[in-house]
Computed example of a mutant assay.
Amino acid sequence: MRGSKLGIGTLAAGALAAGALAFAPAAMAVAPAKATAPYACGMWGGGTAELTATQTGSALTLQVKTAVTTPIGIGAGDVTTTLHMTHNGSGTATFGGSSNPAIPAGGAFDSGPLTSATAFAAGDTLDSFVAATPSLTLEVFGTTVECFADDVQTPGPFVAD
């Protein structure tokens, strides 16, 4: 008798766990996770930048790695980065942060994660901002580096899940 109670309890616990999994929210993922776009940064250089996107709920986080290199070492968190992206083809979403990793002299720039106050809905798109204003601005040691996206990103815009 005692064994049957344990068996029923175990079965009930298993059913509850399976039910909880069925109602758990699905993982969300922006697609594509990575894209590239050409950026021109004036006398600082330019080239292809790699953009990486991650999604948690309605929040998107972007990271930018550029071909622009630094002549001197930069400490972690010493760069304030602002990235403007075209949101849904006509609006603008702004991402920012000061989470860059340490960058050695001669190293390529890496923004670290950039966040936005914009809440993104399923189907919202983000693409490299192509306009007369800077798409990417870096503030480091009192110097402002302005970069302009020369074209839209490849393979296409980020699409929120």
Rank of each mutant, 00 (worst) to 15 (best):
L16N: 02
T66M: 07
P71Y: 04
A160W: 05
T125M: 12
A15H: 09
T92M: 06
F148V: 13
A18L: 15
L83K: 02
T154R: 08
A53Y: 00
A149R: 00
Q63V: 04
T36W: 09
T52W: 06
D124F: 05
I72M: 08
T115H: 07
A40S: 13
A29H: 12
D161Q: 09
A160L: 03
A122R: 10
A67W: 05
G97N: 01
T82R: 13
L60R: 02
A40Q: 09
A31M: 05
T10F: 08
S116L: 10
A121W: 09
G9V: 11
N88E: 11
S90T: 06
Q63F: 04
G96T: 03
A37Q: 08
V140L: 09
L62F: 10
T48C: 06
I72P: 00
A67I: 14
W44F: 03
G97D: 04
A13L: 11
G14P: 05
P155I: 14
T143C: 07
G46Q: 02
Y39G: 05
A24T: 15
E50G: 03
A24N: 14
E146M: 13
A93Q: 03
I8D: 07
G89W: 04
I72A: 03
C147W: 02
S111R: 01
A160M: 06
G89N: 02
A31G: 01
Q153F: 10
D161V: 10
A59W: 05
I72D: 03
P32Y: 06
F129C: 05
T61D: 11
T118F: 02
T70I: 08
A67Q: 04
G42R: 09
V68K: 01
D161M: 14
L114I: 12
G89Y: 02
A15N: 07
T54A: 06
G75D: 11
V30M: 05
A35F: 07
A122Y: 15
A59V: 08
G123N: 04
F109N: 01
S135Y: 11
V68N: 00
T56Y: 01
T54N: 10
A37P: 08
F109R: 07
K5I: 13
T92V: 15
G14T: 10
P157E: 14
T61W: 05
G19N: 07
F120E: 02
P71R: 02
A29E: 11
G96K: 02
A93W: 04
V145P: 07
A121Y: 11
L83Y: 04
F120W: 08
G3V: 15
Q55N: 02
D151K: 11
G19F: 06
L126W: 05
G96N: 10
A105M: 03
L83R: 00
D124N: 09
P32D: 13
P113S: 06
H84V: 12
T61L: 11
L138C: 12
D150F: 03
G19M: 09
A13Q: 05
P38S: 10
A122F: 08
T82W: 01
P25A: 07
T36S: 14
A49T: 04
G19C: 12
T125E: 08
R2G: 15
G77N: 03
F120V: 06
G47W: 02
A33D: 14
D127R: 11
A17E: 07
G156W: 15
L83G: 01
F141D: 14
V79I: 14
A37H: 10
T115C: 00
D78L: 00
T115F: 03
A17F: 15
F141I: 15
A122G: 14
T86N: 05
V68E: 00
D110V: 05
L126T: 04
G112D: 01
A20Y: 11
